[in-house]
Amino acid sequence: MDGIIFADPYNLWKISNIMGFSEDAGMIQMEVVGVAPEPNSNKPLVWLRDEEQTVFLPISIGNFEATAIYMELYDEPPPRPICYDLVRTVLGQVNAKVERIVISDLKDDTFYAQIIFKQGSSEFEVDSRPSDAIALALRVAAPIFASDAVLDEAGLEVEGEEIPLGLEEDMELFEAAAEAELVVQEEPESVVTLQKQLEAAVSQEDYEKAAKLRDKIGRMDAE
């Protein structure tokens, strides 16, 4: 028996024992197809596929990371630099680069990844969530790899389709949501940020705004 057959949401997929993808250390290079909501939970998924376009790898991610990936894929920069843009700038300043990222493992439904950096003749790796690694890789044009072990367990082989049926429509739904600002496009507000806004409101004698900010800070402190 090759694998388990699923019907919905994207046609008939077969989760197969996918072997022999790469002769190079059990890795296969992947590319980012796009971001789409998972049909049942509406939680974002980033979709990767191999260069042969025969195997897809969906990874569940957060709203902020999904939007960060979407913005880079479709060349829609945020109003202000976000964390991945900052890392790209820092790498340039210290003459370092991202050599590659590797989605290396899947344990208890959680994916694990590493970012491999290179500075001069030195190379080192840092553990990362796949979503963060992918968002950074897109910004620095670094190659993305997945291990055979991950693809064996979570890879989706689509028979007779260049892209899973229904995925393109769901990607369009995510695009519409992002453009309508239904997906978070900025880092979550912190108490420090709100405190600065409170101080500014008081200095401008905008006491109504200051009161609202004070109440919001109080609620966050109580959580």
Rank of each mutant, 00 (worst) to 15 (best):
L136G: 00
L136M: 06
R139Y: 04
V140M: 02
V140A: 02
A141E: 12
A142Y: 10
P143F: 06
F145V: 04
D148R: 06
A149I: 09
V150R: 02
V150A: 07
L151Q: 00
L151I: 12
A154I: 00
G155W: 00
E159C: 04
E159V: 13
I163Q: 04
P164T: 00
L165C: 12
L167R: 01
E168Q: 15
E169N: 15
E169A: 15
M171F: 08
M171K: 06
E172C: 01
E172W: 05
L173H: 12
F174P: 01
E175M: 11
E175V: 05
E175D: 14
A176F: 09
E179N: 11
E179F: 12
L182T: 06
V183A: 08
V183S: 04
V184P: 05
Q185F: 07
E186R: 14
P188Y: 03
P188I: 07
P188A: 04
E189L: 13
E189M: 05
E189S: 10
S190L: 04
S190T: 15
V191H: 00
L194I: 04
K196A: 11
Q197V: 01
Q197M: 12
Q197Y: 05
Q197I: 04
E199A: 15
E199S: 15
A200H: 12
V202I: 15
Q204P: 07
E205G: 08
D206R: 10
K209F: 07
A210K: 00
A211R: 08
A211G: 10
